[in-house]
Design a protein around this nucleic acid. Sequence first.
DNA 1: AGGAATTTGTGCGTATGTATC
DNA 2: AGATACATACGCACAAATTCC
Lengths: 233, 233
Amino acid sequence: MPDPTALPKYVQTAEMLIREIAAGRLQVGERLPPERAMAAELGLAVGTLRKALADLEARGLLERRQGSGNYIRSGAEDAGIYAFFRLELVGGGGLPQADVLGVERLVKPGDLPRFGASRMGHRIRRLRRLSGVPAALEEIWLDGSYAPVVRDADLSESLYLSYRKRFGLWITRAEDRVGLAPVPDWAGNPFPLAAGAMAGYVERLSRDGAGQTAEYSRTWFDHERVRYVARLK
Amino acid sequence: MPDPTALPKYVQTAEMLIREIAAGRLQVGERLPPERAMAAELGLAVGTLRKALADLEARGLLERRQGSGNYIRSGAEDAGIYAFFRLELVGGGGLPQADVLGVERLVKPGDLPRFGASRMGHRIRRLRRLSGVPAALEEIWLDGSYAPVVRDADLSESLYLSYRKRFGLWITRAEDRVGLAPVPDWAGNPFPLAAGAMAGYVERLSRDGAGQTAEYSRTWFDHERVRYVARLK
DNA sequence: AGGAATTTGTGCGTATGTATC
DNA sequence: AGATACATACGCACAAATTCC
């Protein structure tokens, strides 16, 4: 009897594979078993497994070569667990980390776009690092309706994982707009660009599983060291 | 008997739908027929049609709602034919256009990353507009092996369409890196930012159907008016 | 309010084509 | 040339979300 609260098998499978890669049980460059063998092993239909593999490919973790096999891409060890994180060092890669600078529940300011159902929002400010290097400042507004309070301790490195585990919120889609904007003036952090200096800028509007806008975030990144990466098609 | 040179049906179907939208035969906001009815109409299996629809969704042309239907998204009239174009006006949308500033066949300079098989490359410089507004400067290096010469007349508004029709080159994947960089000094064009000023910057490495790197391009965009857009998952 | 009908999502299994080894 | 492996395509059954009556 199927569990109605369970995720689709292809999502479960993709996440399982990501964990295997992150844990090092699947090594970079390694070829996966043939799809049919793997599907049989996992008790899945081939098509279901293929959907999971396509997901990993879109996230840049896997390279699929017809007639040859499926190969773990370099950089995959670090990247996978941070599903939607799209910043990397100019030289490539970097392990994403985050320091929480502050969390507050506030009335949403008027300059934010409309998102979520509540008048209130949780404002989370973080310093993002890549392999320890200060890479970006991040201000996240989570709609107030998903949790009465958000504490520092609720926020693990992977924010979307926290949302899921603590608040039952599933971020499934997001739209990013990338441009330039001046660095905000938040005192007391080691971000290398001065307040007011031009930096790379990402605005994101995220939606939950039901398609409702749930979160709005702004990220300022150090363009000397960091790039925003998108893989198309 | 199937034609081995033909594209997959799901690609043909996706392109057909894009043309229908661009031509206005499918209106923005309109709901498509149910998938099963549509598949029967087109002589396709439902799964094949669904793959085409998933493609349109990923490009931002279609919104799919379980239990409800498939709806043409606003902005889709313009966007679809320019498959990989990811710049839009800050206010949203804008019809992409291009003025060719120059085309030359040159030895690839040393500061470009390695791509393609040839020592030579075609350097194409264009001014991109959105609904007439000068939006970006673009320098494209197409590997020399795909064509002996490239003439101005070979380049229609949609470059990837030209590649396909003139040179038999299919761009199927690309990787974008977005950051900031100073505007290059190309005399005599109406790009609003001065040479040396900081602008949005997109580096792209594109691959052909066989997975070979085929093209490298750099785009400087006016961050006051333009954003780079990515839709995730 | 609530149940039936409609519509998309997930999952399975299979057959055949095409690229690679 | 043959074997292997991924890609495309088909068709079906049932689940979940939405809409309609």
